[in-house]
């Protein structure tokens, strides 16, 4: 039996993971003081929680768009070239 065969352990890990998501966003608001927020595209990296949003959106887009294109025409049977 491995550690991850136990559902209880997985639930525990999941809680830690969600907690860390919250902490890392909170940290930004605690540690980084901004006098004003510049809403021009040039300073997009300085938007509050920009990296959190961007990471999530990038991840979702990469998976969905790639799989879409893949199933559209890129993915072929394994013996395609034989």
């Amino acid at each position: 039996m491995g550690y991850l065969d136990e559902p209880r352990n997985i639930a525990k890990l999941r809680k830690v993971f969600y907690l860390s998501l919250g902490i890392v966003v909170l940290l930004e608001f605690i540690l980084i003081k901004r006098e004003h927020i510049d809403f021009s595209i040039e300073h997009i990296a300085e938007f509050p929680a920009f990296h959190a949003f961007y990471g999530f959106i990038a991840c979702a887009l990469i998976i969905l768009v790639s799989k879409f294109i893949g199933h559209l025409f890129l993915m072929k049977e394994e013996d395609y070239y034989d």
């Binding site: 998501l21 940290l27 930004e28 929680a49 990296h51 959190a52 990471g55 991840c59």
Partner: peptide, 11 residues
Amino acid sequence: VGEMQLLLFTA
């Protein structure tokens, strides 16, 4: 903080 946000939210 930016990097950790990017990584954790990707996960």
